[in-house]
Design a protein around this nucleic acid. Sequence first.
DNA 1: AATTTTCCCAACCGCCAGGGG
DNA 2: GCCCCTGGCGGTTGGGAAAAT
Length: 213
Amino acid sequence: MRSPCCDKQGTNRGAWSKEEDQKLIDYVRVHGEGCWRALPKAAGLLRCGKSCRLRWINYLRPDVKRGNFQEDEADLIVKLHALLGNRWSLIAGRLPGRTDNEVKNYWNSHLRKKLTGMGIDPDNHRVGRKVPLHQSRSSNSGTPSSDGTRNYKNMSFWNLNSKVGDNRVRCAGSGSLEENSSGLPDLNLDLTICIPSSVVEKNTANPTLLLFR
DNA sequence: AATTTTCCCAACCGCCAGGGG
DNA sequence: GCCCCTGGCGGTTGGGAAAAT
């Protein structure tokens, strides 16, 4: 049994107060990010290091973009999710100022419903049929290695070059996912934003394009 | 206006990978 | 090669806000 990341006794939990936020901001400004385990004590916070890291990354970091998602951001998330699955950190990495938590929440609360309402299975991005997720967690979250463990680090070959606002999101690799064991065809996604809606309308035979009407 | 239900999101939890000793 | 520690990730939850009754 692994020991907890910190001593839960005597640590604050739940929502952060303004004072706590300020202490964390002040500390990181002076000392920079890192060494999260030691940070709470050094910064005078009664928080676990993990909690500090999360608070900083998801909320306090100066480059965090807050507010509603733009339409092109939502489109990009859907496209990247079709390609990468629940790889929120990778998806967020293509959305400047957005965090994985934010993307994940937005997906679960908005985009999932939106797709479902359009008759698209949000798990596999296909129209009108539910494909068994025999791979469980790994089925939509990365490329499982042969031993069943996640193998994210090997994903660099995707070499995605997205640029929100540049109308350009392209997978530099083959752009397709290999056929899986269920015999389903490749998604073959070309991640190009802002396809003229008139063009998309004519391509309803392509399920992936349905997403972006 | 009061109560209940639903929705959203910040925060937590557990697991995993990588690095160092 | 093994163990421990830390950072990072994705799934889940709890509580407040908003909407519905």
